[in-house]
Design a protein around this nucleic acid. Structure first.
Lengths: 138, 138
DNA sequence: CTGCGTGCAAAAGCTTTGCATTCAT
DNA sequence: ATGAATGCAAAGCTTTTGCACGCAG
């Protein structure tokens, strides 16, 4: 169970373990898609009905800081969150249905390393988005 | 001069050539950075003082549709626009000063092609963002 | 001339903040 | 017991919409 990992993270950083925080964390954990704050609220309330939107925002910010959550950028409306499975974001975004799929990506590492070396940039993480049409929408 | 190109595009699509539209187009053309709508307004007013924010939004939307402008996604605040120089977006984003630099990127094409083939996705354009610390902020 | 494009003001979202209350520790 | 966390309501932003006027074609 990965719940424990987030809980652990909160505890070791001195944050309190509240049902609200656990609910938000679990929602993202179980989501296969990126979620907006409002969506997180909806799903979170299925777990903990009293959950409020303010807390969702605060928790998302907190979890992002701790590295458990990552902000994701979409064409429209822009603001979505997803669990940070890895320090990488590889997304296939469909322009029609707006579905987002992850894909494994090899060979990108060297390319990034090389760029980092050439520019003097210390790269912490990267985001590769391929935008186009998914098989179903073509 | 590239102004002409945008003007041409507007004309051929049946849109009127107004000083407001030309001002917005020129601002993006001359910007080396991504700009928010408010920033576009500010710079646009140096060219055409009566320019209004509403028009900026409408023009950005129009130019995006025509493919002259591309929405860019940043960590915070998210909404920025840039001229669509190429069908590619390669950005180095600094976490501290939020400056964005473009970088030339080679070898990515094959990688994308391969992914497209494997997933059945028709990739129209891509966005590669490297987030980290720029030389000045390290 | 004609209707597209503009600007203002108002509306609509989304996100953040202030503050009293509640709760994890 | 005590300060951190929460939820509500209100404020703040950014973006969109309605409408009368003005200008490009």
């Amino acid at each position: 169970m990965r719940d424990t990992e987030t809980a652990e993270g909160l505890r070791t950083h001195g944050y309190k373990l509240t049902p609200q925080r656990l609910a938000v964390a679990r929602v993202l954990l179980e989501a296969s898609q990126h979620l907006t704050a409002a969506e997180v609220l909806g799903r979170g309330q299925e777990i903990y009905p009293q959950l409020g939107l303010t807390t969702v925002y605060r928790t998302l910010e907190l979890l992002t800081e701790l590295g458990f959550v990552r902000r994701v950028h979409l064409e429209k409306g822009c603001h979505a969150y997803a669990q940070a499975r890895e320090r990488e974001g590889h997304h296939l975004v469909c322009q029609v249905c707006h579905r987002v799929a992850d894909f494994p990506c090899t060979g990108l590492g060297e390319l990034i390393e090389e760029t980092a070396k050439r520019t003097g940039f210390a790269v912490e993480f990267h985001l590769l988005e391929l935008v186009g049409l998914c098989p179903a929408c073509q």
